[in-house]
């Protein structure tokens, strides 16, 4: 089942199209990375899913119910963490969660119990000071706690790690991974290593459209190719290697850079056989041989070119 389905979504601001016929589905139980450059329209899309922005066209379905602008009915299924969550400075974290609990309609006891549980999950269990004295990372963690209070089916996080230092980033990613067993997570980011670290699904937004989407391995298999890097001790050695007849067919797609050569292919094993055969025949000894895994980054750069 899909928790979120977006069909033919379009949105323009003052004549400029930000989202252009976007289609996307988020399957239940996934950790979904929504990738795009700054200004690609990630936040705009998320705000439309939350009914905070009115789409020009298209349909958004959350848990089999259509989303209407200004209405909050479908938001009962969604927990939302904005990029920079802001709270009321004079409240303590537990008081803020109590306010949220009252709005949702939880009982006092339940709110308190769940609040304590969530605060310790995000590492704010013993924090008694008011939110006014919180760091950005702490606000982000409280943001996750408040988003999870409703036990949402879908947690939407808008660039949860972008503004954080490496320690804060790791903590947030760990929390997201921890909760992914109970909640579908959709998070936008432009940090690709975060996606590779915790996501199983991803979609790449470029110029208002999803240009690549699916499971992470699918994406890599479809759009990536493996590469073999060889580094030789001298230019002559590289030259000799390149002049071998068996290597010629591989050179069309190869990149040479100084004493390095990178061979690209969909059939890496075959390439390896050829290369090792040639190396054995010519008695050439490269100083480095490495198989380069297709990275999201190379894919990303390739796609937005």
């Amino acid at each position: 089942m899909n928790v979120l389905t977006i069909q033919g979504l379009s949105k323009a601001f003052g004549g400029q199209k930000i989202i252009d016929n976007l289609n996307m589905t988020v399957p239940e139980g996934s950790v979904f990375g929504f990738i795009g450059q700054n200004g690609a329209g990630k936040t705009t899309t998320m705000k439309m899913v939350l009914g905070l922005l009115r789409p020009n066209q298209g349909e958004i379905i959350v848990c089999n119910e259509p989303v209407h602008f200004g209405q909050t009915k479908t938001n009962q299924y969604i927990g939302y963490l904005p990029d920079v969550p802001e709270f009321y400075d004079y409240m303590t974290p537990i008081r803020y969660l109590a306010l949220c609990g009252e709005i949702i309609g939880l009982s006092k006891a339940e709110t308190y119990q769940r609040g304590e549980e969530l605060l310790s999950l995000v590492g704010l269990g013993n924090v008694k000071k008011t939110i006014g004295g919180f760091s950005r990372g702490m606000k982000q963690r409280l943001g996750i706690a408040q988003a999870l209070l409703t036990r949402p089916k879908l947690l939407i996080c808008d660039e949860p790690t972008s503004a954080l230092d490496p320690v804060g980033r790791k903590e947030i990613l760990d929390i997201l991974r921890k909760i992914s067993s109970t909640t579908t997570v959709l998070f936008s980011t432009h940090i690709l290593s975060d996606v590779e670290r915790i996501c199983d699904h991803a979609a790449l937004l470029n110029q208002g459209k999803i240009v690549v989407g699916g499971t992470l391995s699918e994406i890599k298999a479809l759009h990536g190719h493996e590469s073999l890097l060889l580094e030789f001790p001298t230019d002559d050695a590289l030259h000799t290697f390149k002049s071998q007849e068996a290597i010629q067919p591989l050179l069309d797609t190869a990149e040479a850079n100084g004493k390095e050569i990178i061979l690209h292919s969909q059939e890496m094993e075959k390439v390896q056989h050829t290369v090792f055969h040639v190396l054995a025949e010519t008695a050439l000894c490269p100083i480095k041989i490495e198989i380069m895994e297709p990275s999201l980054e190379s894919l990303f750069l390739e796609v937005i070119k």
């Binding site: 938001n75 939302y80 904005p82 920079v84 802001e86 009321y88």
Partner: peptide, 15 residues
């Protein structure tokens, strides 16, 4: 300016 209402409205607080 702070965006504090967004969190509460998305939680189902009627406008």
């Amino acid at each position: 300016s702070k965006g504090t209402l967004v969190l509460l409205v998305t939680k189902g607080l009627p406008r």
